[in-house]
Design a protein around this nucleic acid. Structure first.
Length: 489
RNA sequence: GGUCUCGUGGCCGAGUGGCUAGGCGCCGGUCUGCAAAACCGUUGACAGCGGUUCGAAUCCGCUCGAGACCUCCA
């Protein structure tokens, strides 16, 4: 197993050589979705980013346990001052059981992820299924003296923690600055300091999701689940923790504090953060209301979209930017991605038909090295893709007899594309199977035969008429060297 | 206001001191009854000003502009 992989660690703000704690095992935890609404484009980025990480680590031979949680409790509505649970609120509004809502949106999330060819994580734990672990963690932090109880709620004592440890080491914050700049909100009298965060929250009477605990009938704080579930499945210290940059503070900072306070151990070796997707230069987010749902992309059913974009186009669009760079949405950019992806996948099809020669005009082995170099440099998928396009150019040139390739190099090139395009980038051809359209296929064969006869007789009026009429019902006909091909738009 | 990040050709997007990024578009060509598609090739940039250096998109300073976080908000 080669070990030249460098990853950018938010904790050190540097690229570091990736050395797992217990090779060949790797533990990776990524913050998953809160299931109270449909997934939008922003949700696709961490999912695809860490899918890439997961796939590449596996490709390198690591045995990865990848945990991505489902948050179905504990996140509180920010515009509801009562501290009402997002899931519970939606449930009451729609007269559903909270778990019904969570199940519904979990299923829809999974459908979206499958469409995007995102691999399933090894374990997908739910916060609601780990209330006991979370209560145990609260108790450990209380026992260690880094939390206090107030009126049935338990809060983390950030100031005390900061005397021994450093609250802010991940996000680069200094507690004194936080003290000076944190807004004082109403109804926070229970807290000793405004930046203290809830570990356990006493439920208001109208709050549906609640559990018995030593402190009150209530629910766990929103940072707690990740600490509890990562420890449960990966241990008190593990290799990789991922998530969006917007979670850096306070969520991930607080995760470190909770684990450190409870166990005295720094929980994560490498912190990886993906950047945001923006729309008109602004973060695409639920709270801003400027998001476009993934389903809307797939169907083209949103006023901001000039057309539908396939899941693979979305995937390619995201992979064409480095995960730590912001990525701006636009129809033009997506259309460019759509065409680029098509070129890449068609090149891959052409590759399967190439005939070998006695000599090679290109250095395939070097191209392969460049692909690994790109991925080893903090998962640089845009560079990888640029290298793959160089491969496409070679493929097409060989196909045009302008260049040549030996049987050995051809085999290597096929392996290169199978490894990097299919396995690592997870890009697959989504053209329809056509199984259910057998009748249409046969009808089209008849129509195209008639058209071909007309063309053979130089009766172009008839052949063009057929093509024009088919175009009216969204069937395009193109004459290629291998004969006419058709597509339903 | 505080902390941090960023500003690359028509569009998207890599690149952190000298060596072609790449994709889309444009333009030229091949192919073709025509069209489309496909393929090949070319063009074109480093926000502004100043500094360091033999040499800067890349380092430093300032100016202008944008974004993220600072809330029990993915």
């Amino acid at each position: 197993m080669e070990n030249n992989l460098f990853v950018y660690n938010t904790l050190s703000r540097k690229k570091e050589l990736f050395e797992p704690l217990n090779p060949p095992l790797v533990g990776m935890y990524v913050c998953g979705p809160t299931v109270y609404g449909d997934a939008h484009l922003g949700h696709a980025r961490p999912a695809i980013t860490f899918d890439l990480v997961f796939r590449y680590l596996q490709h390198l031979g690591y045995k990865v346990r990848y945990i991505r949680n489902i948050t179905d409790v504990g996140h509180l509505e920010n515009d509801a001052d009562e501290g009402e649970d997002k899931i519970a609120k939606k449930a009451r509004l729609e007269q559903l059981e909270p778990m019904e809502v969570a199940q519904y949106f979990s299923d829809r999330y999974h459908d979206n992820m499958d469409a995007l060819n995102v691999k399933h994580p090894s374990i997908e734990p739910r916060a609601s299924g780990h209330i006991i672990e979370q209560m145990e963690l609260v108790q450990k932090i209380l026992d260690a003296g880094y939390a206090y109880e107030a009126n049935g709620s338990v809060y983390f004592d950030v100031e005390k923690y900061n005397k021994t440890y450093h609250y802010g080491k991940l996000s680069g914050r200094v507690l004194e600055d936080l003290m000076a700049n944190t807004r004082e909100l109403e109804g926070q009298d229970e807290k000793r300091n405004s930046f203290d965060f809830a570990l356990w929250k006493k439920a208001q009477p109208e709050h549906i999701m609640r559990w018995h605990s030593p402190w009150s009938e209530g629910f766990p704080g929103w940072h707690l689940e990740c600490s509890a579930m990562s420890a449960r499945y990966l241990g008190e210290r593990f290799d990789i923790h991922g998530g969006g940059m917007d979670l850096l503070f306070p969520h991930h900072e607080s995760e470190i504090a909770q684990s450190q306070a409870a166990n005295g151990i720094e929980p994560v070796k490498y912190w990886l953060h993906n950047n945001m997707i923006t729309i008109n230069g602004q973060k695409m987010g639920k709270s801003l209301g400027n998001f476009i749902k993934l389903d809307e992309f797939f169907k083209g059913s949103n006023a901001s979209l000039t057309q539908a974009y396939s899941p693979m186009t979305i995937r390619f669009f995201i992979l064409q930017a480095h995960y730590r760079s912001p990525l701006d949405f636009s129809n033009e950019a997506l259309q460019a991605a759509e065409k680029g992806l098509k070129r890449l996948l068609q090149g891959m099809e052409t590759l399967q038909k190439l005939q070998p020669s006695a000599t090679s005009t290109s250095d395939i082995s070097q191209l392969q090295s460049k692909c690994y170099e790109a991925m080893n440099d903090d998962f640089n998928s845009p560079i990888l893709i640029a290298n793959l396009f160089e491969g496409v150019r070679i493929i097409n040139s060989v196909n045009d007899k302008k260049e040549s390739i030996t049987a050995e190099d051809l085999a290597l090139l096929k392996k290169l594309f199978a490894d990097f395009v299919t396995d690592i980038l997870g890009l697959i051809n989504e053209t329809s199977s056509g199984e259910q359209n057998k009748l249409i296929d046969e009808l089209m064969d008849v129509i195209l035969l008639l058209r071909q006869n007309a063309r053979a007789n130089k009766d172009f009026g008839t052949s063009d008429k057929i093509r024009d009429e088919l175009a009216k019902i969204s069937i395009s006909v193109k004459d290629t060297k291998e004969g006419a091909v058709w597509n339903m738009e």
